[in-house]
Structures are given as C-alpha cells and as structure tokens.
Amino acid sequence: MENLKQELKLKILEELNLEDLTIEDLQDDTLLFGEKIGLDSIDALEIIVMLDKDYGVKIINQQQGIKVFHSIQTIADFIEESRKA
C-alpha cells in the first residue's frame, strides 16, 4: 500500500506536470482538487487514463470519479479494492 501511494504521487506529479510541487506537498490525505494542488477537469480525465493504462482499473462515471479522486489515499484504496474484486 505504501509503495502504491508513493508510486501514485510520483506519477501524478510527473504526468500532470505539477512542476511547482514536490512529493512532500502531496500527502496521503491532501485534497487533489483543493486549492493547494488545484487539479481541474482535464487532470481528472488524465488520471482516469493513467488508472486504466497502468493499473487496469476503470472509472465508470463522474460520481465515482469525484469519490475516488479525493486524495492519494482514496485512489490507492480504489485500486486495491478493484484488484481484490
């Protein structure tokens, strides 16, 4: 789980071009769409692609996306649960 979260943080920083931020800015419970990180709707779509491509998990609809993309923790939980299912 810790490895997965670390990996997700690095991927999100890299793939979403968050060059102003470091891994310390991205704690497990930091709000991804809050003021500090400031992701937007296109970033959300890019995370959907990343989850599908790299982890084989799919986000079905917007409501689910809003829940899953809350923080690194919720994304990691979602991946773990999907893998068990």
Binding site: L16, I42, D43, L45, E46, V49, D52, K53
Partner: peptide, 10 residues
C-alpha cells in the same frame, strides 16, 4: 490499444 491523452488532445 493505447489510450489517447485527453490533455494533449485539448
């Protein structure tokens, strides 16, 4: 089978 990037498409 690869997925087109939404952010690049924009």
């Amino acid at each position: 089978d690869s997925i087109p990037s939404p952010s690049l498409f924009v």
